[in-house]
Structures are given as structure tokens and as C-alpha cells.
Design a protein around this nucleic acid. Structure first.
Lengths: 128, 128
DNA sequence: TATTTTTTAGGAATCAATCCTAAAAGAAGG
DNA sequence: CCTTCTTTTAGGATTGATTCCTAAAAAATA
């Protein structure tokens, strides 16, 4: 385990934010100024491959990384792109797939909405 | 409506395939050899904006385009990347979102599996 | 048909991500 | 700690998808 990889992992593990490679690069450079961009991408790839973190492919935007290893859906603001984790939809997708004779190996579920900040309301109805 | 745009739309509308911009470009060039790549991208964007077609963002691969305008999930082969349409999961996602106080504006659901061809079986259990 | 507006072709530019290579750092053993 | 072997890094070049730019062409409008 190199210092570079540990640093990159720590940045992701330390916060629930779903950051882009570039954001992670910037944060990491603050602590290790010689860190190369390619090193960040390569280590992110390795961490994903080893199941330490998850990669989130975003529509028309750079990928983001999630410290949560278990599969779960995401709530994405259509306007600002902000991403939140959602609890896994227990027993929702499996039956849907099974009913079609499909053996699920994974899923990607994004729910789009407009977040309170982008809606301009402060009296939104979301809990959390 | 320009000839270029009509041609691009026709290619998508004519088949259930989920093609990439590059594939559409190649098919279109067969009929209109001077067509520019940028014209394909621009028109795909406009068609998506106007709700004539849908854009499918793929993981680590170029986007694909879908003639089906209604929202619906996709079944994606992890190995070859092949994409199939799935019927809309009526009343599955809305309650899930509503239960969390979220007003859904859209969704993106991809189910991953390994298609029969990639599994190497011919006795698979999928219908259709 | 003349005028105004939009779109195109073609190529340059951008942006995220990957690849390349010599140098540096880590792992393993004693 | 030394030495050796293997992996990883920095830094920059490269790629691949997509977007942008501009003068010319086509479409819409009158």
C-alpha cells in the first residue's frame, strides 16, 4: 500500500461526498503536491476493482466516487448534479429481474429530482 | 427539419438497436457522405432535448441512443455491453421515491447481467 | 424571389481518462 | 539495514468522445 493510494482512499472514506477524480486530485495535492493526476485515476480504478469504493458514472459529467461499498441507488439533482445515497430497495429489483428470467449481477439506479436548494424552497418535504 | 436531421432520426427510429453516435454517423455517411460528425452529435442532442429519442449513458463506453421515448429500464450485458429495453416497472420506483419525500423527475435504471451469448450457453432461460 | 435565420461541413479544441517510461518506492529475505 | 525483485510513481504525451468555431449553404419567412 503506497502513501499515494492510502491518501486517495482516506479522502474518499472520510466524507460522504461523491467526489470527482479531479476534486480528489485537488484535495490530495494539498497534502502531496507532487501527486500525479494519472496516479489518482489509476488508484481509483484499483480501489474500485478491489471493491473498496464504488464508481458512479454520471450523465454528461465526470464520474464520481462513493465510499459506500454496498450496492444502493442514488438521488441526483438534475440542476446542480449533487448526489445523495439512498437505502437499498430490498427485494424490489430482484423479483423484477427474476420475473424476466434474468440473473442479476448488479444494478445502477439513479433517481432524478430537483434538490431544495435548486428549487429555491426552504420548506421542502424531504426528511433526513 | 433538415435532411441531415431527418436521416439521423430515421436511422434511430428504424431499429431497436441502441447505437452509439459513431455507429449512427457511419450508417448515415453511407447515404450522405459529406455529413459531418459534429452535425450528428448536435442533432442527437437536439432530438434528445425535444424528447424524440433518449440518450443512454453507458459505463466506461460511449453513449447510446434509444428510439423509445417513454422512460424504461435497460438490461445491459456486463461482458459485451449489449443493451435491451425492459418494460417500465409500473408503480415500483414512484412509491420508493415518495416514501422518502422525493418528487421524481426521472430515473435511470440499468440491470446488469451476462447475456446468453457471453455465458456460452444456448439453453438459457430467458424468454423473448 | 429577396431577406432573415438556422444549420451545415470541416476542422480545431476541449475534457475526462488512459498510456508510456525512466526513476523511485515498496516488499521480501537474510 | 543491504540487496534484489517487483510494483508504483511523476510527468507528460496520447486517446477517444464530444463540443466548439466559422464561413458557406440551406431552410424558413416574407
Amino acid at each position: 500500500m503506497t502513501r499515494q493510494r492510502q491518501l486517495i482512499y482516506n479522502i474518499i472514506a472520510a466524507a460522504p461526498e461523491h467526489r470527482t477524480a479531479e476534486e480528489i486530485y485537488d484535495l490530495a495535492r494539498a497534502e502531496m503536491p507532487t501527486l500525479a493526476r494519472g496516479t489518482v485515476y489509476r488508484n481509483l480504478g484499483l480501489l474500485v476493482r478491489d471493491g473498496e469504493i464504488r464508481k458512479l458514472e454520471m450523465a454528461d459529467a465526470p464520474a464520481r466516487y462513493d465510499r459506500e461499498k454496498r450496492p444502493h441507488p442514488h438521488l441526483v439533482c438534475q440542476v446542480c448534479g449533487r448526489v445523495e445515497d439512498l437505502p437499498a430497495p430490498e427485494g424490489l429489483l430482484e423479483p423484477f429481474a427474476a420475473a424476466r428470467g434474468v440473473t442479476l449481477t448488479g444494478y445502477d439506479l439513479k433517481l432524478y429530482h430537483v434538490c431544495p436548494a435548486c428549487r429555491g424552497f426552504r420548506n421542502d418535504t424531504r426528511q433526513e
